[in-house]
Design a protein around this nucleic acid. Sequence first.
RNA 1: GCCCGGGUGGCGAAACUGGUAGACGCGCCAGACUCAAAAUCUGGUUCUGGCAACAGAGUGUCGGUUCGACUCCGACCCCGGGCACCA
Length: 822
Amino acid sequence: MSATYDPHEVERAVQQRWREERSFEASESGAGEKFYCLAMFPYPSGQLHMGHVRCYTLGDVINRYQRLKGYNVMQPMGWDAFGLPAENAAIKHGIPPAAWTRQNIDYMRGQMQRLGFGFDWSREFATCDPEYYHWEQWFFIKLYEKGLVYRKSSVVNWDPVDQTVLANEQVVDGRGWRSGAPVERREMDQWFLKITDYAEELLDALDGLEGWPESVKSMQRNWIGRSEGVEIDFPVPGDLELGLDALTVYTTRPDTLLGATYVAVAAEHPLARKAAERSAEVAAFVDKCRNLKTAEAEVAALEKEGIATGLTVVHPLTGEALPVWVANFVLMEYGSGAVMSVPAHDQRDWEFARKYGIPIKQVIEPAAAEQACDLDVEAFTAYGRLVNSGGFDGLTSEQAFDAIAQALEEKGLGRRTVNYRLRDWGVSRQRYWGCPIPMIHCAECGIVPVPEKDLPVVLPTEVKFEGVRSPLTTMESFYRVACPRCGGEARRETDTFDTFMESSWYYARFACPDANSPMLDERADYWTPVDHYVGGIEHAILHLLYARFFHKLMRDQGLIHSDEPFTRLLMLGMVLKDGRKMSKSAGDAGNPQALLEKYGADAVRTAMMFAAPPDQSFEWSEAGVEGQARFCRRLWNLVHEHMAAGEVPALDPAALTDEGRALRRKTHETLKRADDDYGRRLTFNTVVSAVHELTNAISRAAPGDPRDRPAVHEALRTAVIVLSPIAPHVCQQLWSALGETTLLVNCRWPEADESALVQETVELVVQVNGKVRGRVAVAADADEATVRAAALGNENVERFVEGKTVRKVITVPGKLVNIVVG
RNA sequence: GCCCGGGUGGCGAAACUGGUAGACGCGCCAGACUCAAAAUCUGGUUCUGGCAACAGAGUGUCGGUUCGACUCCGACCCCGGGCACCA
């Protein structure tokens, strides 16, 4: 082995050895308990950026640490290969999406291998492989048969640049998340997955996810948006011929029902349409609302406007006639598209009532006298005590919730319900580069699923783009089919799935990438749930919610027998460059290639881990890489100098000098601390610090007294094994240099020797009135009187105690003495 | 507006259970080696005063609890993220 450290030579040699020994190919029959370690697979955009480097290094550190701890670890890698950029490249450069994608995959795989990630490449797949999306199509049909898939015409977010429909989640501040173009409204037939059927379980199960960060669970709770309320029917007078008996509203504040002075409906509400037929003014207003863009930023800034329909409904408890308004702030998609308005106790209703001169009727008064309530200034929205509410007067809001709900239930005019903000998942995309939706439209039979024997519906890869539109829509050989039911002429669905479909179950497929009947087999139950999932915080809501949903769908299909896909979750902070997210910044700025060529993978990996704790966002700077390259070289030189000094005798703790014993203590402290940092705290930055400290201690100790050589050897051996999950190549070579013959990745994490941690003398800090005034060394087992005497005997301490009365002496064993004087 | 994070040297950060604030690294300064530079090694590096020993101040702000607070409590300011005409 070369005496000077050449990272490129080291890394090539070690990677070759892992390949030859198939070190990272996992099997269900491997020794130890299973551990499934997964980092979110990337979109093959062209090249890795530093955000990828961080994510996969973190995953690999966990992978390698858990291996050392004796687990049977599986860490796969694959490609989230469908998506818009491939189409954009095709449109721009004329390269077919499939070819562009494959080319990117090959390049990025090479970069990952260069970084030395311990992936099980035998399980690799791309979501654009027909063998993969075959089963997605199969599963979709199963869900269709179960009634969990439906087709619905709905207003969708239309991205005028990408010419496609976006999910609500893909609209950011009213703009398409990729194109950045303002989103428009459009009506279209779409396929939906009934995620709302699982809303309750998706919410409740969050409480059991102890290995998830609280912030992510809170975001998901927020997104699901459960609220408890009452559905209230306001009867419609019979003479109006409106086609409905009652107007149903949803409220979370039934206690304020007696304060309702009008009701408001969305412009798309049937009642609004009826009113529009009868009044040109109302029709004009409804029309105006329809043409509004869905852009959320604009909606939020929108002035609250409405128009009276001239219609009235009947208050379910008082029998009073209440006017019906059409209002632009009522959402058709939430609740029933209609609200009861209580201006006295809802700020938005208050503003609306003031604007249009609608009466404001107080029915809640503050329970506590000091609470402000001035209805001339603003609505009183807090809970309180009921007034002006007939038989309900005097009840608290909480009591009135139940009492009024019950009164309505008895009259058959209301029901307690639970509402969710979560909407069903629209999965249709008018795009080419995605998984074809396996459905056929027949004029005679309607919707007919593609028969199982005809799956997969393969996406043609030889295509020509004309503009942005999907080439499938004009490709007769694709869309012209015979109806599987009647044999007549039919048209194949040309929409493709939202790519979140592919990423919702890939983790399970990695367990059995070749499973063929059906999508998963018993190996999925062996490997899943994923024990540790690592990925970017930007996926905290959507991807993780959809994957949880899919896991439950697969469970209910009998394909898998657990309830949740990811046991422990590590959400990475973002890697920023000039204040921007690395993955979004253009060009080569984030490409690690130049750094790899200059410093090698170990230095890049170590610098990345050392920069900040994993969950924290940080600004990437190359400055740290050189420092870690220097550190690798120092460790390399220390090992080689140590070994060059000849045979190392066996360790006999009793034979060591004081320096040797101190080094041993540092060694075992490092081992203990790193174990906790790796396994429990996931703070890999402090692991690097700990190894730096140990290395510094070795530098100071070696070459020392020849009797301490076994302690130096043990310290070097420990530094190498502790650092190995982070800088695996150089550590492997140093492991061999230290005379070890087994591959480091097959070794076991050493247990810390408690006896090495015992100290004979300890240094105590001496404080006077809480301020540090000196230090004293005492025997570790010294009694309180001895410690006290030593503390008071310190020269500097004496100066501060002199002439004062010692009121109290507090001793913290092994740490400090605080002398309180006055 | 509501819900999460966070605020510590020139910079990235550490201090895990209330017990030495600034470990570790970057950068910078000085020295050694060198004709010189790079690399490497050694020392220094929170601020103020002091040759030094040491003293005073110091973890966003103000207050509290405590022998002792970056850490706990109360009020507030700022930054980042999520949600939001959600009835």
